[in-house]
Write a protein that binds this DNA or RNA. Structure first.
Lengths: 141, 141
DNA sequence: TATTGTTATACTCTATAACTATA
DNA sequence: TATAGTTATAGAGTATAACAATA
């Protein structure tokens, strides 16, 4: 991309985030999935079974827009949706064995995409960047 | 956002980039503009007059999708589109006085949004993050 | 023949209003 | 009355095919 705008960190974040999303999307299209689908699988893999609203918060998607995402995963047998007996308004989402298996296989491809995206930075800077982004994510409302 | 996924730097980038874009979009909606419109104004403010294709590269938007973005800015009198006499296929984009004025006023609001987004990080970490993102942007194809 | 910009189109992503059922 | 999830819809973002003018 030769010359760049460096005026705003927020802009760089949005710009590089879009690039990252684009690469994920291209990779996931082979599996007929979108970045949000993988985000749901990853979040369930990370925190275990969770209510749908919790997952929405974790992946940063409005609950109303999460419905269709989870719906597809359920129809594919990757995620199970069960009414919570303690509060029957709530639906608990759980990874199925198929879902966990697919997630494991996708992680390799995720890592490959990652290496291409971050390949220009030396290892210690990649770690530094990861740490800063993780901390920033924790500070958000 | 309490607990987070920290498995992948690319994911954090996409996640925080979406958050950043969302905040920009909310701010810019008051001016009936989108993040892409501001990106065009910023890029012209940064590199001076430029061909449309060059701007497309700078803001990371396909030239076919840039047409409508620039078209709106032109109709609003913020950007001028002139045929390049040296190569009449090319259109040179230039900020008008109105465009430059609006850009200056928007920068304050951009900074305010930025402070809210990055407020959780101490100053030296914000600088570090900015440097890493700028370097990463330079390494991309 | 290749490049710059354009038109048109379809599909995804995001935001929001209004609803159901449960609490 | 408030909350979890849903339905439906409109707008913005993105990708791609086909084209005109110019080089």
């Amino acid at each position: 991309m030769e010359e760049r705008l460096d005026a705003s960190t927020g802009y760089l974040l949005a710009r590089l985030g879009a690039e990252s999303r684009r690469r994920w999307a291209r990779m996931l299209a082979e599996h007929q999935l979108t970045p949000h689908h993988l985000a749901v699988l990853m979040s369930l893999g990370h925190v275990g079974p969770a209510h749908q609203q919790r997952v929405s918060e974790l992946i940063g998607v409005d609950p109303r827009n999460t419905v269709a995402v989870v719906g597809l995963l359920q129809r594919r047998g990757l995620v199970e949706r069960a009414v919570d007996p303690a509060d029957r308004r709530r639906h608990t989402l759980t990874l199925t064995a198929d879902g966990a298996g697919l997630l494991a296989r996708l992680r390799e491809q995720v890592d490959a995409v990652e290496d291409l995206l971050l390949g220009g930075l030396p290892g210690h800077e990649r770690d530094q960047l990861h740490g800063l982004l993780a901390r920033l994510a924790d500070t958000l409302p």
